[in-house]
Design a protein around this nucleic acid. Structure first.
Length: 425
RNA sequence: GGGGAGUUUCCCGAGCGGUCAAAGGGGUCAGACUGUAAAUCUGAUGGCUUAUGCCUUCGCAGGUUCGAAUCCUGCACUCCCCA
């Protein structure tokens, strides 16, 4: 590592706010320091928005320190009001348990390259046994209400109609205590998080000072946004998840491939392992030959491998080759099944192909590629429908055995990127 | 409590007795161009066995009329002003 961690973060545009930089550098000058980031199990999978924090932790490991990933088994029961405009619904214990398992697995997978220097902890492990009265006396007593009320996350909510419940208000105390506790047991003194976590982080720092006379530090990274101002990782059809069951490796890969030039450049810098020299080289290539989209390809490759492994990347690439390739003529069902595994599919009775066959319009409706028969007809007439990547412009077209790509499968496509598989069994 | 304004198709917003499945914009979906980009341009955008056809839709329920999103009555909700 040519630089210390903080300099590295700064060079990659990953610092939004931080506590005293000199003190931070000083503490991080010793290798093997522990730095933590928390992840609340609000769903059974993390999404792209969480990727930044994970990447930060990976960066921590690369810099010779030890990342601590905290899964919020306890805090997840409460719900963080930060950055939220409305009160959260509480999760059931079953949901929570499932979410914790899913999130923890993903964290371990993404951080696996850092080996045994990674610590994954769950704050439920130390919060479970803490009694309410005990907590109020040991922690609550040391947190001034004036400071809690001054936090933006609290203020903005109090100004709203919905307000905020005592439960969510207390969230800050739990996270503060986590920070102090990790200082106690792991000598972890730095917390990193998204910019919306600044209030919670500083609350923890303050508690550490009061309770332990300990110097804690915090860094927040800017929210990743796209050039158009929207959040990175959000699409019209929802978030991009890390769980392949929610977002297939192919769609994950495609998300990055489709980023525009500037966004791709920033993501390469912020989300990948590439050295600064390497990212600079990509900047140059992009300026010289934007059409080659080298940046997008490398970015998609790096991140898909990080999240889905080599196998996931291979599948995504193979699917991409087929999807954006020529007419599909001779592929066996097995390959088709694998390549299109993540594409919506629909089964029809084999006999529907007999005689006149199955109306294309019906097939489009059944697979969900068209909302209604009318919509299907319109799209066909506008030249937007393809069977096995061959355009069909006749709205009255009927599918027969001749249209099969494999022995029992054919591939439907609407527009450039929406696919569906029809299987005839 | 008194007075006023409003509720239209995914969203905003026109329409104010027939020519209204309803202008315009946004969004979305296709097409062209291109780099699986941006911008731009074109078309489409309630449903149906695709039909100068039928059905559903203009807050809800009734009514007037040959005919209503448009008029009347009641109800619900929203907003504004005066108390």
């Amino acid at each position: 590592m040519p630089h210390d961690l903080l300099t590295e973060f700064e060079a990659r545009g990953l610092v939004h706010q931080s506590t005293d930089a000199a003190a931070l550098r000083d503490w991080l000058a010793t290798p093997g320091r522990r730095v933590y980031a928390g992840f609340d199990p609000t769903a059974d999978s993390l999404h792209v928005g969480h990727l930044v924090a994970l990447v930060l932790l990976r960066c921590v490991a690369r810099a010779g320190h030890e990342p601590v990933a905290l899964v919020g088994g306890a805090t997840g029961m409460i719900g963080d009001p930060s950055g939220r405009s409305e009160e959260r619904n509480l999760l059931s214990p079953e949901e929570l348990a499932a979410n914790i398992a899913g999130v923890e697995r993903q964290i371990r997978a993404v951080l696996s390259s850092a080996g045994d220097r990674v610590h994954v902890v769950n704050n439920a492990d130390w919060m479970r046994g803490v009694g309410y009265l005990e907590f109020l006396r040991d922690v609550g007593k040391h947190v001034p209400l004036s400071q809690m009320l001054a936090k933006d996350s609290v203020k903005s909510r109090l100004d709203r109609d919905g307000g905020l419940s005592y439960t969510e208000f207390s969230y800050m105390l739990l996270q503060s205590w986590d920070f102090v506790h990790l200082g106690d047991v792991l000598d972890c003194r730095v917390q990193i998080g998204g910019s919306d976590q600044w209030g919670n982080i500083t609350a923890g720092i303050e508690l550490g000072r009061r309770l332990r006379s300990r110097d804690l530090h915090g860094i927040t990274c800017p929210l990743l946004t796209k050039a158009d101002g929207t959040k990175m990782g959000k699409t019209a059809s929802g978030a991009i998840w890390l769980d392949p069951k929610r977002t297939s490796p192919y769609r994950f890969y495609q998300y990055w491939i489709n980023l525009d030039d500037d966004d791709a450049g920033r993501c390469l810098l912020r989300l990948t392992d590439l050295t600064l020299d390497e990212t600079a080289a990509f900047d140059a290539k992009r300026a010289a030959a934007p059409a080659a989209r080298d940046t997008q390809k490398r970015l998609a490759e790096e991140l898909t491998r990080l999240v889905h492994g080599d196998a996931g990347l291979a599948a995504a690439r193979q699917a991409t080759d087929i999807f954006f390739g020529a007419e599909i003529t001779s592929l066996d069902d097995q390959s088709l099944g694998e390549i299109f595994a993540d594409v919506p599919s629909h089964e029809f009775a084999r006999t529907t192909l007999d005689g006149d066959g199955l109306a294309l319009v019906e097939a489009l409706k059944a697979t969900g590629l068209a909302q209604s028969a009318s919509a299907a007809r319109r799209t066909i007439e506008q030249g937007g429908i393809y069977v096995n990547n061959r355009r069909i412009a006749d709205a009255a077209h009927r599918l027969t055995a001749q249209d099969l790509a494999g022995t029992a499968t054919l591939v439907l496509r609407s527009g450039k990127k929406s696919y569906a598989v029809a299987r005839f069994v």
